[in-house]
Design a binder for these strands. Structure first.
Lengths: 342, 342
DNA sequence: CCGCCGAATGACAGCGCTATCATTAGTTGA
DNA sequence: TCAACTAATGATAGCGCTGTCATTCGGCGG
């Protein structure tokens, strides 16, 4: 199979438009970017020429001349994790139609990769940056602090925002979930967690806050692993947990995948989820409600987080003073069958 | 809260590097892009200067001068759909470390959005383009045909590739799955489908191929909806199906989410998945194997698809002649408990 | 020992836009 | 009526690279 050489279609430039509209390139440029600065008559003539010629601006030239690209860099630790996928979805929905382009960077939970990606993004003079979490490496932190664009940290909250933040307290959320288990009468709550990233660690912390406050001993009821989370892993971790702490009568899972896996495994073992074993997930993905029995979880507002991150960036790009630069989205406990004792 | 004005850090340019390495900018540029053209001594001096100064090339300037950006445009219909998320994951993993940037476009299943996004991408003079499916609008088709960059269509196969293709036959895959149901002894197989996009339609076609070949009447056993797929929707569609076709004894679901929903709903109704109701999903996401009972599905190679799409683009960008410009990744039936009659 | 050749290096223009300043036209108040 | 403004438009000079030539240099055959 021969590859047909592809010929570049002739590019329509600002100059072409200017010629057709009988004006200068700079005026066309202005008409496109700040229409208010150009008289209506001229603006219309230009609009007509743009349509007729099918002019589309060259972002590279624009970026070079203005020292500012239309790229919004987005750094997330995982593309496949549905939690981040939903943040992305909100983010892409919000950016759609705006003259900006989200560019995704996948850090794969590796700080060095994150450092590198931030450097790459910054080399593009981005319009804004979205980074996940608050535990950037010192290198990343320095790069972000020196960046001459707005930056939003998402997913978590912290005392020292680089610039802006939108998220919620994982610790408080896990604490609330654990309190719920205790209130429901479970005596020996356990915690299982996969992929113990900083957010997971904070959830574990919240779990510990709750049992300490209730004067419950932790025993051997915390099982964690750095392995990436999966449904199957829920089964494995349950086995491990029950082997080392048979007294366990309720489990807070680090995330919903694990919870689902625990539920399937419990079915297999003939353990009744709810009456015999309380079960609570984290994030409240759609399947939690649909499952049978339905599974209690802590709802987090992931799409909203993506949406707000872009809104905050836009506000700053447009020069508005953002009054709140840290937004707490909170969370919501969704009690369901899996934490009903009868 | 006042926004501290952020000062732009001084940019390190090729010229700075050239000065330090005591050579010219063009030589530095060459040393970076085609090291073979520069003598080793000079190359080392340049490498040293680059490191010491922390030089990072400006992609906008490079794109402008070379009329070719390092952007690889990727168009998918949904960010949240885990199937596409996995394709993306393979794609990002493969592109990582290469001097290219994937830029994602979310068409949301709307052809007009797709047209627009292709236009936007082309305005960046991309290094390559990845588009989902083979049912582009005439406008998109024309744009892609005239594009002066390699293009890969993913997810499906078709007779008339725009340029390159990597995918599998949804029709054959669904046919195989339905044959499996029939072989297992189910007499009244049904099909339920959500979000009936072109790929779903082809799966339905494959289902019909199989029952026609087995001389089974379709009856009222096909229920579809344009609504986006979800686990909950599986429950709804099952109810609808059983209401209009109570004889149903097996179901091929358009995708795994629906299958999971059907399974939960069956539990709720006291229907035994497997013996009473055969169930088969599509794609084989991780939870299928972990579910209890485990759910039969057709495995598709999504990460691989992303990987190959990039590999094919890279080969073409590097000027290699791609011998196969259409790659069939096939599929694999994964028989499990949900299609065991006893 | 000279001219020729390929490999290595360099000079220069320009990619398509926008920041900046200059200019012109139109307005206003004393 | 005219200086002093504001609004609208334009001329110019790059932004930081790379394509395209031109130049340099050492090696080598005749």
């Amino acid at each position: 199979m021969t590859q047909a050489p592809r010929k570049s279609p002739p590019r329509v430039t600002l100059e072409d438009v200017a010629r057709r509209a009988q004006t200068s390139t700079i005026t066309v440029s202005r008409a496109l970017r700040r229409p208010g600065m150009v008289s209506e008559k001229l603006r219309e003539r230009i609009a007509k020429a743009v349509t007729e010629l099918g002019y589309v601006p060259d972002p590279a030239a624009s970026a070079l001349a203005s020292r500012r690209s239309n790229v919004i860099g987005v750094l997330i630790p995982s593309v496949t994790n549905s939690v981040f996928a939903e943040v992305l979805s909100g983010l892409y929905d919000t950016i759609a139609g705006k003259p900006f382009n989200a560019q995704l960077g996948n850090t794969r939970y590796a700080p060095e990769t994150e450092d590198e990606l931030i450097r790459v993004f910054l080399s593009q003079r981005p319009a804004g940056l979205v980074v996940t979490g608050i535990d950037q490496s010192p290198v990343s932190r320095a790069l972000l602090a020196a960046a001459d664009c707005p930056v939003v940290q998402i997913m978590e909250l912290g005392e020292t925002p680089t610039d802006m933040m939108v998220g919620f307290s994982h610790r408080d959320a896990a604490r609330t979930a654990t309190d719920h288990l205790i209130e429901r009468g479970y005596k020996f709550p356990a915690f299982i967690g996969a992929r113990m990233d900083p957010r997971s660690e904070r959830r574990l912390q919240g779990f510990r806050d709750a049992i300490a406050a209730a004067d419950i001993a932790e025993g051997d009821r915390v099982v964690t692993t750095p392995t990436p989370s999966s449904v199957t892993l829920g089964e494995t971790l349950l086995a491990e947990l029950l082997a080392q702490a048979p007294e366990t009568d309720a489990i807070l899972c680090n995330n919903d995948d694990l919870a689902l896996g625990v539920q399937f495994a419990a079915h297999r073992r003939g353990i009744a989820i709810g009456p015999e074993l309380g079960l609570c997930g984290f994030n409240d993905i759609e399947v939690m409600e649909a499952a049978h029995p339905s599974i209690t979880s802590v709802r987090t507002f992931r799409r909203e987080m993506g949406r707000l991150a872009i809104d905050m960036l836009m506000a700053r790009i447009e020069g508005k003073d953002v009054d709140e630069n840290v937004r707490d989205l909170g969370y919501a406990l969704m009690p369901r069958d899996s934490t009903m004792r009868e």
